[in-house]
Nucleic acid binder design. Structure first.
Length: 538
RNA sequence: GGCCCCGUCGUCUAGAGGCCUAGGACGUCGCCCUCUCAAGGCGGUAACGCCGGUUCGAAUCCGGUCGGGGCUACCA
């Protein structure tokens, strides 16, 4: 063991003692059964939809138990920290309603940026060193690589353990010499001399789990060459979650294999470990199987994708909740959003992010909204993502409302033509003259009808000349029927099928389509009468 | 390589030894309605990864195998 004076000389003299920190961050006064959860994003400038997925579960579990949900910025890897990333995360949380109860803006257990907690980590690292539960390691990167290569060649488990752990029991004089020479070092955890054969623990989602116990001397404090002496994830997890009095750690299942190490760390530090719940990752369908949603390969892995497309928050949340708890997907949306997420009911497999399903949910959801509600929800999206559309929407508010109301309000089965806000322009753009491109007789949009442009022109002109604004839908449509008959269109498709030669121009379908395209510039639209009513005579 | 986790229709799942010739939802296909599109109605399609074992009886229990995922970093 190293000399206490030598250890203390490595640290600032004014470092607080662990006992002081224990006092400074006392146990929380919370009702029985209340869970304190936390979400720990790294500010790398990219928000993964899986981040929101886990944050949502964290928040929900905390709130349903009367506990607290906190967000801690895990920026111990300073090289990966990106300017503005925290604000970006904040915006995402805002968008998805996963605002933290506790963070740097408001909370008694901070700071909530790991980079601002250096003194805390150092205090506990010093403590472990004093107790001989940690040691200094001067191994260079090259030496470490060499060790790993030799282990691989010998088909041994890789790692810093046993005879490979060259600094674990190094001569204190040698350590001092390295120190005197200014050689950089890391602090490693001294894993138990006699580890249990198996580490066992209970996961809230998977039940009883076990693995070989950890025998690696993991790094807990990164290199002393760094201006900031920051910890690795493992050490920060133990220290922060203890001091922030977190009771339930919900995280991705890639952490399962680190639990034995974490348990040893909690034990060495004299902390009570939290309960763990390991969430299966969101997956992506690929030919022949599935894999984890990848930031690099899959646009839908990023939160930006959903925001840009303009999926309503409610729809995304409902979708994510359904992935977390299958039963919630069977519930109607309003109930599902209110229902608690049960960790026991979380799947263990890793659900696929199925955009088709999301679109279906989204279309169903938007169909339950009134025209006014649609417009209210649409507005902020347009402001952020379609600046040209914004003035149109604002200047023609009444028309927008009337357009959205077509086949939406007062009907049994509302239209489901909006799956996301970015669909609006295509589905409703023609209601606004500013967005309309005039149609000509030989227009591409009419090409599908395979009609002579002269016939089209004649019919359209005639229609325009004789057009009357009638109140009754049937009478209104009769205008087209009458005109169609004059222009030798069959009165209905059946008639046309029976006797195609008699109707060279086709049937009422084709005639209607001419009117539709002329009116809307689109081959698809809501009911023609309703459209004409909103459009008026212009 | 070592160690973990996982495996029911294309997808999300129901299923906790007989209620299962495996149910629902989304998708998909067909039909109906119809002036287009969307919606809606009706119907069809489609799964217990594989092999052994336990049992009168297995999707459900056990073993193996295959497949997928993860960890094996001074990244989280």
């Amino acid at each position: 063991m190293l000399d206490p004076a030598m250890i203390d000389a490595l640290f600032p003299v004014d470092l607080p003692e662990p006992a002081h920190l224990e006092e400074r961050y006392p146990p929380r006064q919370l009702p029985e059964g209340a869970q304190v959860t936390r979400f720990g994003p790294s500010p790398t400038g990219y928000v993964h939809i899986g981040n929101i997925y886990v944050a949502m579960i964290d928040q929900n579990v905390a709130h349903q138990t009367g506990g607290t949900y906190l967000v801690r910025i895990e920026d111990t890897d300073q090289a990966r920290v990106v300017e503005g990333a925290v604000e970006q995360l904040q915006r995402a949380f805002e968008f998805f309603g996963t605002r933290a109860d506790e963070d740097d803006n408001d909370g008694a257990y901070g700071p909530y940026h790991q980079s601002q907690r250096e003194a805390i980590y150092l205090s506990y690292a010093r403590q472990l060193l004093r107790e001989g539960k940690a040691y200094l390691c001067f191994a260079t990167e090259a030496e470490l690589t060499d060790i790993r290569k030799r282990q691989e060649a010998a088909k041994l488990p890789t790692g810093y353990y046993g005879k490979w752990a060259i600094w674990r029991d190094a001569d204190p004089a040698l350590v001092q010499a390295k120190l005197d020479g200014g050689t950089p070092y890391v602090v490693r955890f001294r894993s138990p001399d006699a580890p249990k054969p198996r580490a066992e623990f209970t996961d809230m989602i998977r039940g009883r789990l076990s693995a070989e116990d950890n025998r690696n001397d993991a790094v807990i404090l990164k290199s002393s060459v760094n201006p900031l002496r920051l910890p690795t994830y493992h050490f920060a997890h133990a220290v922060d979650d203890h001091l922030m009095r977190v009771t339930l750690v919900i995280r991705g299942d890639e952490w399962i294999s680190s639990v034995p190490l974490h348990l040893q760390l909690f034990d060495a530090l004299g902390f009570t470990p939290p309960t763990y719940a390991h969430i299966a990752p969101l997956m992506k369908q690929i030919p022949g199987g599935k894999r984890k949603l990848s930031k690099r390969k899959d646009p839908e892995a990023g939160v930006e994708f959903y925001v840009k497309a303009g999926y309503p928050t409610e729809a995304i949340l409902y979708f994510l909740r359904g992935l977390a708890n299958g039963q919630l997907a069977e519930l109607p949306l309003p109930e599902a959003l209110e229902a608690p997420i049960q960790l026991e009911d979380c799947g263990v497999a890793g659900p696929l992010v199925d955009l088709v399903k999301l679109e279906d949910i989204s279309a169903d959801y938007i169909a339950t909204l009134s025209a006014e509600q649609v417009l209210t929800a649409l507005h902020p999206w347009v402001a952020d993502h379609d600046p040209d559309l914004l003035p149109v929407l604002e200047n023609e508010n009444a028309k927008a409302l009337a357009a959205l109301a077509v086949e939406r309000e007062g009907v049994d089965n509302p239209r489901k033509d909006l799956r996301k806000w970015s669909d609006f322009r295509e589905a409703y753009g023609f209601f606004f003259v500013q967005l309309f491109t005039p149609v000509t007789a030989d227009d591409d949009r009419l090409a599908g009808l395979k009609l002579d442009p002269d016939v089209v022109r004649a019919f359209a002109n005639d229609f325009a000349a004789k057009y009357q604004e009638l109140d009754d839908p049937q009478e209104w449509f009769n205008q087209i029927r009458t005109l169609a008959a004059e222009h030798r269109f069959a009165p209905n498709p059946k008639e046309f099928k029976k006797n195609p030669e008699a109707y060279p121009n086709g049937s009422i379908r084709e005639a209607s389509q001419i009117v539709r395209v002329a009116l809307t510039g689109s081959t698809r639209s809501p009911d023609l009468f309703a459209v004409a009513r909103v459009l008026g005579a212009d």
